[in-house]
Design a binder for these strands. Structure first.
Length: 151
DNA sequence: GCCAACGTTGGC
DNA sequence: GCCAACGTTGGC
C-alpha cells in the first residue's frame, strides 16, 4: 500500500504549475533534519504526495504527485552559490538526501488551509498540529477526505 | 511587516 | 546535556 505525504512548497519559488511543466523534479532544498529523515527513511517509490502551497495569498493543497526515486543526493548543498549551500556537508557523507516526484494532477478544488482548519476530519493533520514541518505524513483517512474535497 | 511557534547553535 | 540566544517559517 502506498503511503500519502504532504510536501510544502512556496509557489513563488516552485509551484505545482512548475512541476506540471517539468513533469518530474528533484525535491531539493529541504534543510530540516526531521523532514530529511522522513525523506531518507520513510518515503518510498510509489507513495503519493499532496502538493501544498505555503507563504502565499491562499495557502492550500493544490495537487498530487508521486514518488519516482529515493535516496537522491541534493547537489545544491555543495554549490556555494545556492541558497541551499551547506559548508559542513561533504561528497563522501552528504548530509541532505531527498526524493524525485512526478506530477500527477491539479486538484480541481484546491483545499485551503482555512478549510482544513475548519473541518473536523482534518484537525489531527500535521498541517494543523506540526505546522512548520515541511514533509508531512497524511493518513489514509485524511487522504480520502482531501481527495473527496479536492475533486 | 509582525510575531508566535519552533528549530538550531554554541557556551558552559 | 542544558538552555539562552538567535534564526527561520509561515499565517495573518
Amino acid at each position: 500500500m502506498p503511503q500519502y505525504w504532504l510536501f510544502k512548497t512556496e509557489p513563488d519559488e516552485y509551484s505545482i504549475d512548475d512541476l506540471a511543466r517539468e513533469g518530474e523534479c528533484l525535491w531539493e532544498g529541504i534543510r530540516n533534519y526531521q523532514a530529511r529523515n522522513r525523506l531518507r527513511d520513510e518515503v518510498e517509490v510509489g507513495d503519493l504526495v499532496f502538493i501544498y502551497h505555503s507563504s502565499c495569498a491562499v495557502p492550500a493543497v493544490v495537487g498530487l504527485a508521486e514518488v519516482t526515486a529515493t535516496g537522491c543526493v541534493d547537489d545544491a548543498q555543495f554549490n556555494a552559490q545556492s541558497p541551499y549551500y551547506d559548508s559542513k556537508s561533504t561528497r563522501e557523507a552528504p548530509r541532505w538526501v531527498t526524493v524525485r516526484v512526478r506530477y500527477r494532477e491539479h486538484l480541481p478544488n484546491a483545499i485551503t488551509l482555512k478549510d482544513i482548519k475548519s473541518r473536523k476530519s482534518f484537525t489531527d493533520m500535521e498541517l494543523v498540529t506540526r505546522a512548520r514541518l515541511s514533509i508531512q505524513h497524511v493518513s489514509q483517512k485524511e487522504a480520502d477526505e482531501l481527495l473527496k474535497q479536492g475533486k
